[in-house]
Design a protein around this nucleic acid. Sequence first.
DNA 1: GCAGGGAATGCAACCGATTGCATTACCGCT
DNA 2: AGCGGTAATGCAATCGGTTGCATTCCCTGC
Lengths: 360, 360
Amino acid sequence: MPTIRDVAAKAGVHPSTVSRVFSGRASISPETRRRVLEAAQALNFQPNAIARSLSEQRTRTIGIVVPHVFNGFFEDSFFPQVMQGLLRATYAAGYRILVSGSSSHQDEIDQVREILGSRQADGIVVMSSRLDVDTVGTLQSKGTPFVLLGHPPADHPGVAWADADNRQATREAVSYLIGLGHRRIAYVGGDPDVLVTKERLQGYRDALEAAGIRPRSGWIDYGYFAEDGGYQAVARMMALGDQAPTAYYAANDLMALGILRGLRERGIPVPQAVSVVGTNDSPEAGHVHPALTSLHVPYAAMAEAAASMLIQAIEEGRSPTGFTLLPCRLVVRETTGRIPAEAQARQRAASSSQTTANHP
Amino acid sequence: MPTIRDVAAKAGVHPSTVSRVFSGRASISPETRRRVLEAAQALNFQPNAIARSLSEQRTRTIGIVVPHVFNGFFEDSFFPQVMQGLLRATYAAGYRILVSGSSSHQDEIDQVREILGSRQADGIVVMSSRLDVDTVGTLQSKGTPFVLLGHPPADHPGVAWADADNRQATREAVSYLIGLGHRRIAYVGGDPDVLVTKERLQGYRDALEAAGIRPRSGWIDYGYFAEDGGYQAVARMMALGDQAPTAYYAANDLMALGILRGLRERGIPVPQAVSVVGTNDSPEAGHVHPALTSLHVPYAAMAEAAASMLIQAIEEGRSPTGFTLLPCRLVVRETTGRIPAEAQARQRAASSSQTTANHP
DNA sequence: GCAGGGAATGCAACCGATTGCATTACCGCT
DNA sequence: AGCGGTAATGCAATCGGTTGCATTCCCTGC
């Protein structure tokens, strides 16, 4: 592999001149430029990015560590969408992405530290779903730029992040169901330990409260993002008898499909008797039958925003600041419908009897 | 950021000693090691990976360029699975992945050249779907290690690759349909210009020929991997009247879903009247209703094999050689079934009348 | 005719590690 | 005591660029 010195020798100039020709940020006579480029061409010279990085103290690379939980990440479209967003932002800025795997939660944090500490990347996008407060603090004290994908576990001033407004979005989805006449609505969350699960539950509660509906604890269940989790939830909900929900909100589409399966096996028509809303608007959502109404979460846009914030901060030589909170969008398809009037009436009666039962 | 010299100063040794302590491949007295480690700890020292790469002339990184066609790659699970496979292999070997986007086919090749030429990665995995013979030759002459994901367009001795046996797999899938009694079988390919489409068509032909079935050109269509492509194919196939297929092979699951939609709209029961086989065994395949029979293509395993071959060659300081050809696996679910006897009889009659019509 | 100024280029230090070779110190053995 | 051998460490060159400063040269304006 030819180096800058080989080119210099061939063109009869000093290596620094070759460097200046390639960096383009200095005045070079047209004649010299021509000679240098000619020599470079003849030798098939390409500047060594590593040497350049060492000298410039920047790599034009941002890092990302794939959490071990996503080692089967193609099960859900979350990670692919994140990659997509990162690619959009980095490509536009002439950056590349350095990806590392991880084998455990601790290892994930170690990898982040390693990439940052060894300066293999100029900054890093960190998936924060289970990040604890201490870790964020440690990262921050390191002084290397990072942006959280998802918001920080607690209020951490000066930590930059990008996230979707999950609480508000869930609230809107549930309000939509209420608007269709539903009053017994189930919340099927993912992993109860994950922050987003709690936020969505809060949105669910907001919507119910705004409509004056008293939530029942039996309407709340967790499916850990698995198809079977949704299926099992239906079994448990149906045990509530005439208090069984007429609508389900599921925290991802896979669980929604499980719910649909559970309902189908019981001969319950969707959306005639029961409505179902999924989350993520995954590619299959629009192509299953009946097509799934789903809450679109802008993962790609979040990642793009995170990467953009990061890159901009890097270029300006400062730490990333501020946050980006993106709205979600409910994509209405075929699994949601107005509750039939008679069922509605029956439901009202049941609902009021429930109220009396609870307050004897 | 502390450097090796700071640590050396603090520990009262020469920088090279610190380097040896960290590389571990030299004899260091226990006392010195302790002092160095202590100093490093105190200074929060981490070796600079860039400087190390420059000196060692290796980055422990492999590259991948995302083709612009996959900028919407999460529509299909192909790219995520590739990432997954790459992650498995690289993580196990202590490598990382450098990802670059690309905006066009030409740009894709440029990015590959750039990464290789600038030595930002020790080698690269190249998606070969549309690679032409010249490009492969050029890459080869560069002398930097690469492995193709998918096999080379023509016989290129010395080019390493990993691929699935698409022809054989399609042959088996179609043979399976024939075994169920089907004799009028449609092939709905992706993009006719892509190599894999031709190979699968060949496998389809193999199966038909082995069963003594004369293929009709009307049974062959291309859906460009889109849901609507499958849907449209049904419309065209139905126009064949009593020569319409009783089974469909689709080159991805999305088109298979489109086919299912087309059949459903015409009131044709699946699998009672018509069978459908998809390809890729995407996560949704098992969760739609009816669950889709699909040809599982081991994309993750292919990518893992490609990365492993690449890394092994890098470590041994040679060019990657050889190839890996992986079998696919038909995952039978609910969209395929034995053709009803009476339909079968009718079909035989039609088939023989067709034969006479073709040979007057 | 000469001072001033800017353009073009060279020089050499530097980025932060690695590593072949030289040197020192210490050990065991005769 | 002297010698050989090995373990431990230091020295300095090297990887391949970048960049602040110095130098040269030429042009312009008075």
